[in-house]
Design a protein around this nucleic acid. Structure first.
Length: 270
DNA sequence: ACTGGCACCTGGGCGC
DNA sequence: TGCGCCCAGGTGCCAG
Protein backbone atom coordinates (compact mmCIF):
# COMPACT_ATOMS: atom_id res chain seq x y z
CA UNK A 1 0.00 0.00 0.00
CA UNK A 2 2.43 2.69 0.93
CA UNK A 3 3.64 5.35 -1.34
CA UNK A 4 4.78 8.54 0.28
CA UNK A 5 1.31 10.05 0.75
CA UNK A 6 0.17 6.94 2.60
CA UNK A 7 3.24 7.05 4.82
CA UNK A 8 2.70 10.73 5.54
CA UNK A 9 -0.97 10.10 6.29
CA UNK A 10 0.07 7.35 8.67
CA UNK A 11 2.47 9.71 10.38
CA UNK A 12 -0.19 12.37 10.82
CA UNK A 13 -2.74 9.87 12.02
CA UNK A 14 -0.44 8.28 14.58
CA UNK A 15 1.27 11.39 15.79
CA UNK A 16 -1.34 12.85 18.17
CA UNK A 17 -1.78 9.46 19.84
CA UNK A 18 1.80 8.31 20.19
CA UNK A 19 3.75 11.48 20.86
CA UNK A 20 4.05 11.89 24.61
CA UNK A 21 3.07 8.30 25.29
CA UNK A 22 5.39 5.92 27.10
CA UNK A 23 6.12 2.42 25.91
CA UNK A 24 4.99 -0.18 28.43
CA UNK A 25 6.13 -3.11 26.34
CA UNK A 26 7.32 -3.77 22.83
CA UNK A 27 6.56 -7.14 21.27
CA UNK A 28 8.14 -8.66 18.21
CA UNK A 29 6.23 -11.72 16.99
CA UNK A 30 8.18 -12.29 13.82
CA UNK A 31 11.69 -10.97 13.40
CA UNK A 32 11.89 -12.03 9.77
CA UNK A 33 11.34 -8.73 8.06
CA UNK A 34 13.37 -7.40 5.15
CA UNK A 35 16.23 -7.36 7.59
CA UNK A 36 16.00 -9.41 10.79
CA UNK A 37 14.72 -7.29 13.63
CA UNK A 38 17.60 -6.65 16.01
CA UNK A 39 17.62 -8.79 19.15
CA UNK A 40 17.01 -6.67 22.20
CA UNK A 41 14.87 -4.08 20.46
CA UNK A 42 12.10 -4.75 22.95
CA UNK A 43 14.34 -3.90 25.90
CA UNK A 44 15.61 -0.73 24.26
CA UNK A 45 12.07 0.56 23.81
CA UNK A 46 10.60 -0.36 27.16
CA UNK A 47 9.85 2.58 29.43
CA UNK A 48 10.83 5.21 26.87
CA UNK A 49 8.59 8.07 25.84
CA UNK A 50 7.88 8.97 22.22
CA UNK A 51 9.03 12.57 21.82
CA UNK A 52 8.21 13.11 18.17
CA UNK A 53 7.21 11.29 15.00
CA UNK A 54 9.05 12.27 11.84
CA UNK A 55 9.30 11.00 8.32
CA UNK A 56 12.27 10.83 6.00
CA UNK A 57 11.48 9.43 2.55
CA UNK A 58 9.17 6.51 3.35
CA UNK A 59 10.76 5.84 6.73
CA UNK A 60 8.85 6.69 9.87
CA UNK A 61 11.12 7.86 12.66
CA UNK A 62 9.92 7.66 16.24
CA UNK A 63 12.10 9.85 18.43
CA UNK A 64 13.02 8.64 21.90
CA UNK A 65 15.52 10.09 24.32
CA UNK A 66 18.00 7.29 23.68
CA UNK A 67 17.57 6.93 19.95
CA UNK A 68 15.08 6.42 17.17
CA UNK A 69 12.80 3.65 16.05
CA UNK A 70 12.81 3.52 12.26
CA UNK A 71 10.01 1.70 10.47
CA UNK A 72 9.50 1.16 6.75
CA UNK A 73 6.16 -0.21 5.56
CA UNK A 74 7.53 -1.93 2.48
CA UNK A 75 4.89 -2.93 -0.06
CA UNK A 76 2.20 -4.23 2.23
CA UNK A 77 2.82 -2.80 5.66
CA UNK A 78 0.46 -0.75 7.77
CA UNK A 79 0.50 0.78 11.22
CA UNK A 80 -2.63 1.35 13.20
CA UNK A 81 -3.74 2.01 16.72
CA UNK A 82 -5.85 -0.61 18.40
CA UNK A 83 -7.32 -1.22 21.82
CA UNK A 84 -5.57 -3.77 23.99
CA UNK A 85 -8.22 -6.44 23.51
CA UNK A 86 -7.97 -6.33 19.70
CA UNK A 87 -7.45 -9.65 18.02
CA UNK A 88 -3.94 -10.38 16.79
CA UNK A 89 -3.82 -11.18 13.08
CA UNK A 90 -1.57 -13.59 11.29
CA UNK A 91 0.64 -10.83 9.92
CA UNK A 92 0.77 -8.59 12.98
CA UNK A 93 4.50 -8.77 13.58
CA UNK A 94 5.18 -5.94 15.97
CA UNK A 95 3.38 -4.12 18.80
CA UNK A 96 4.18 -1.06 20.80
CA UNK A 97 1.95 -1.08 23.88
CA UNK A 98 1.57 2.44 25.17
CA UNK A 99 0.67 3.77 28.61
CA UNK A 100 -2.41 5.50 27.15
CA UNK A 101 -4.06 2.13 26.60
CA UNK A 102 -3.44 2.01 22.88
CA UNK A 103 -1.30 -0.41 20.96
CA UNK A 104 0.50 0.65 17.83
CA UNK A 105 0.39 -2.47 15.68
CA UNK A 106 2.53 -3.16 12.65
CA UNK A 107 1.01 -5.51 10.09
CA UNK A 108 2.94 -6.59 7.03
CA UNK A 109 1.87 -9.67 5.07
CA UNK A 110 4.78 -9.63 2.64
CA UNK A 111 7.38 -8.71 5.23
CA UNK A 112 9.19 -6.32 2.91
CA UNK A 113 9.00 -3.75 5.65
CA UNK A 114 11.69 -3.17 8.23
CA UNK A 115 12.24 -2.13 11.83
CA UNK A 116 15.52 -0.65 13.02
CA UNK A 117 16.84 0.94 16.16
CA UNK A 118 19.06 3.99 15.64
CA UNK A 119 21.22 4.80 18.69
CA UNK A 120 21.99 8.18 17.12
CA UNK A 121 19.15 10.15 15.62
CA UNK A 122 19.18 10.15 11.83
CA UNK A 123 22.26 7.99 11.57
CA UNK A 124 21.77 4.90 9.52
CA UNK A 125 23.26 3.67 6.27
CA UNK A 126 19.76 3.37 4.79
CA UNK A 127 19.28 7.11 5.30
CA UNK A 128 22.74 8.21 4.29
CA UNK A 129 22.42 8.47 0.53
CA UNK A 130 18.84 9.55 0.12
CA UNK A 131 17.97 12.38 -2.23
CA UNK A 132 15.88 15.42 -1.30
CA UNK A 133 12.29 15.33 -0.09
CA UNK A 134 9.97 15.96 -3.04
CA UNK A 135 7.88 18.55 -1.19
CA UNK A 136 10.83 20.52 0.14
CA UNK A 137 12.72 23.43 -1.35
CA UNK A 138 15.63 21.11 -1.99
CA UNK A 139 13.83 19.65 -4.96
CA UNK A 140 14.04 21.95 -7.93
CA UNK A 141 13.86 21.63 -11.68
CA UNK A 142 17.43 22.82 -11.89
CA UNK A 143 18.55 20.08 -9.54
CA UNK A 144 16.79 17.39 -11.57
CA UNK A 145 18.16 18.82 -14.77
CA UNK A 146 21.74 18.87 -13.49
CA UNK A 147 21.53 15.41 -11.93
CA UNK A 148 20.21 13.93 -15.14
CA UNK A 149 22.88 15.19 -17.51
CA UNK A 150 24.55 12.29 -19.25
CA UNK A 151 22.08 9.77 -17.89
CA UNK A 152 20.55 7.31 -20.33
CA UNK A 153 18.15 5.79 -17.83
CA UNK A 154 14.44 6.22 -18.55
CA UNK A 155 13.01 9.32 -16.91
CA UNK A 156 10.52 7.23 -14.95
CA UNK A 157 13.27 5.13 -13.41
CA UNK A 158 15.26 8.28 -12.79
CA UNK A 159 12.59 9.96 -10.69
CA UNK A 160 11.90 6.70 -8.84
CA UNK A 161 15.56 6.48 -7.82
CA UNK A 162 15.89 7.27 -4.10
CA UNK A 163 19.30 8.77 -4.63
CA UNK A 164 17.79 11.37 -6.96
CA UNK A 165 14.58 12.21 -5.11
CA UNK A 166 12.74 10.21 -2.47
CA UNK A 167 9.11 9.27 -2.18
CA UNK A 168 8.14 8.98 -5.83
CA UNK A 169 6.75 5.48 -6.24
CA UNK A 170 5.27 3.71 -9.21
CA UNK A 171 1.80 5.22 -9.07
CA UNK A 172 2.85 8.82 -8.60
CA UNK A 173 5.75 8.61 -11.05
CA UNK A 174 3.25 7.40 -13.65
CA UNK A 175 0.80 10.17 -12.80
CA UNK A 176 3.40 12.93 -12.66
CA UNK A 177 4.77 12.03 -16.08
CA UNK A 178 1.29 12.02 -17.53
CA UNK A 179 0.57 15.46 -16.11
CA UNK A 180 3.89 16.78 -17.34
CA UNK A 181 3.41 15.32 -20.81
CA UNK A 182 6.69 13.41 -20.73
CA UNK A 183 7.10 9.89 -22.06
CA UNK A 184 8.18 7.57 -19.21
CA UNK A 185 10.77 5.90 -21.41
CA UNK A 186 12.49 9.08 -22.51
CA UNK A 187 16.15 9.19 -21.49
CA UNK A 188 16.50 11.40 -18.41
CA UNK A 189 19.52 13.11 -19.91
CA UNK A 190 17.56 14.23 -22.94
CA UNK A 191 14.85 16.04 -21.04
CA UNK A 192 15.33 19.79 -21.07
CA UNK A 193 15.06 22.27 -18.21
CA UNK A 194 11.63 23.54 -19.20
CA UNK A 195 10.21 20.04 -19.10
CA UNK A 196 11.86 19.37 -15.74
CA UNK A 197 10.06 22.45 -14.50
CA UNK A 198 6.75 20.92 -15.53
CA UNK A 199 7.77 17.61 -14.03
CA UNK A 200 8.81 19.10 -10.71
CA UNK A 201 5.46 20.90 -10.47
CA UNK A 202 3.61 17.72 -11.39
CA UNK A 203 5.42 15.66 -8.74
CA UNK A 204 4.61 18.23 -6.07
CA UNK A 205 0.99 18.53 -7.18
CA UNK A 206 0.30 14.81 -7.35
CA UNK A 207 1.90 14.06 -3.98
CA UNK A 208 0.30 16.95 -2.14
CA UNK A 209 -3.13 16.26 -3.59
CA UNK A 210 -2.86 12.66 -2.46
CA UNK A 211 -1.75 13.72 1.02
CA UNK A 212 -4.72 16.08 1.22
CA UNK A 213 -7.07 13.27 0.26
CA UNK A 214 -5.45 11.13 2.92
CA UNK A 215 -6.29 13.71 5.52
CA UNK A 216 -9.94 12.80 5.22
CA UNK A 217 -9.23 9.31 6.54
CA UNK A 218 -7.48 10.50 9.69
CA UNK A 219 -10.61 10.77 11.78
CA UNK A 220 -10.99 7.00 11.82
CA UNK A 221 -7.38 6.22 12.43
CA UNK A 222 -7.77 4.73 15.88
CA UNK A 223 -9.27 1.29 15.61
CA UNK A 224 -9.60 1.64 11.86
CA UNK A 225 -7.81 -0.49 9.38
CA UNK A 226 -4.83 1.83 9.20
CA UNK A 227 -4.84 1.00 5.54
CA UNK A 228 -5.72 3.99 3.41
CA UNK A 229 -5.23 2.01 0.22
CA UNK A 230 -5.10 4.12 -2.88
CA UNK A 231 -6.43 7.54 -2.24
CA UNK A 232 -9.48 8.54 -4.15
CA UNK A 233 -7.22 10.92 -6.01
CA UNK A 234 -8.37 10.37 -9.54
CA UNK A 235 -5.63 8.50 -11.32
CA UNK A 236 -5.36 9.59 -14.92
CA UNK A 237 -2.75 7.12 -16.08
CA UNK A 238 -1.93 4.41 -13.55
CA UNK A 239 -4.03 1.31 -14.14
CA UNK A 240 -5.67 2.72 -17.27
CA UNK A 241 -3.97 0.74 -19.99
CA UNK A 242 -6.25 0.41 -23.01
CA UNK A 243 -8.59 3.14 -21.82
CA UNK A 244 -8.91 6.42 -23.69
CA UNK A 245 -6.60 9.24 -22.60
CA UNK A 246 -8.55 11.80 -20.60
CA UNK A 247 -6.91 14.57 -22.53
CA UNK A 248 -6.93 13.41 -26.15
CA UNK A 249 -8.85 10.13 -26.31
CA UNK A 250 -5.96 8.06 -27.66
CA UNK A 251 -5.67 4.56 -26.19
CA UNK A 252 -3.39 4.56 -23.18
CA UNK A 253 -0.44 2.28 -23.72
CA UNK A 254 1.19 -0.08 -21.23
CA UNK A 255 4.78 -1.20 -20.98
CA UNK A 256 7.26 -2.39 -18.42
CA UNK A 257 10.11 -0.21 -17.27
CA UNK A 258 12.53 -1.54 -14.71
CA UNK A 259 10.18 -4.47 -14.00
CA UNK A 260 7.32 -2.10 -13.18
CA UNK A 261 4.06 -1.61 -14.98
CA UNK A 262 3.83 1.75 -16.68
CA UNK A 263 0.97 3.41 -18.52
CA UNK A 264 1.18 6.47 -20.72
CA UNK A 265 -0.48 8.27 -23.57
CA UNK A 266 1.66 7.89 -26.69
CA UNK A 267 0.26 11.11 -28.10
CA UNK A 268 0.31 13.45 -25.08
CA UNK A 269 3.56 12.16 -23.63
CA UNK A 270 6.67 12.60 -25.70
C1' DA B 1 29.76 5.68 -11.99
C1' DC B 2 25.87 3.89 -14.34
C1' DT B 3 22.68 0.17 -15.89
C1' DG B 4 19.50 -3.45 -15.87
C1' DG B 5 18.02 -7.38 -13.48
C1' DC B 6 17.20 -10.13 -9.31
C1' DA B 7 15.91 -10.83 -4.82
C1' DC B 8 13.02 -10.82 -0.64
C1' DC B 9 7.49 -12.65 0.61
C1' DT B 10 2.44 -13.40 0.70
C1' DG B 11 -2.12 -13.01 -1.13
C1' DG B 12 -5.52 -12.09 -4.63
C1' DG B 13 -7.38 -12.70 -9.09
C1' DC B 14 -7.59 -15.08 -13.24
C1' DG B 15 -7.98 -19.04 -16.61
C1' DC B 16 -8.43 -23.86 -17.06
C1' DT C 1 -13.17 -26.21 -5.85
C1' DG C 2 -8.60 -26.55 -6.87
C1' DC C 3 -4.29 -25.63 -9.09
C1' DG C 4 -0.89 -23.01 -11.36
C1' DC C 5 0.33 -18.74 -13.05
C1' DC C 6 0.83 -13.80 -12.97
C1' DC C 7 0.55 -9.59 -10.67
C1' DA C 8 1.11 -6.17 -6.80
C1' DG C 9 1.94 0.47 -4.19
C1' DG C 10 9.55 -0.93 -2.41
C1' DT C 11 14.23 -0.88 -2.78
C1' DG C 12 18.98 -2.84 -1.68
C1' DC C 13 22.34 -5.30 -3.93
C1' DC C 14 24.75 -7.65 -7.65
C1' DA C 15 27.41 -8.39 -11.92
C1' DG C 16 28.63 -6.42 -16.13
Amino acid sequence: MPELPEVETTRRGLSPHVVGARVDTATVRDRRMRWPVEPGLEQRLRGQTVRQLDRRAKYLLFDFDKGQLMIHLGMSGSLRLVESHAEIGKHDHFDLSLDNGLIMRFRDPRRFGSIHWLPIHGEHSLLAKLGPEPLSDELSAGYLFERSRGRSVAIKNFIMDNHVVVGVGNIYATEALFRAGISPKKAAGKVGLARYQRLEQAIRAVLSEAIQQGGTTLRDFVGGTGDAGYFSLSLQAYGREGEPCERCGTDMKGLRLGQRATVYCPKCQR
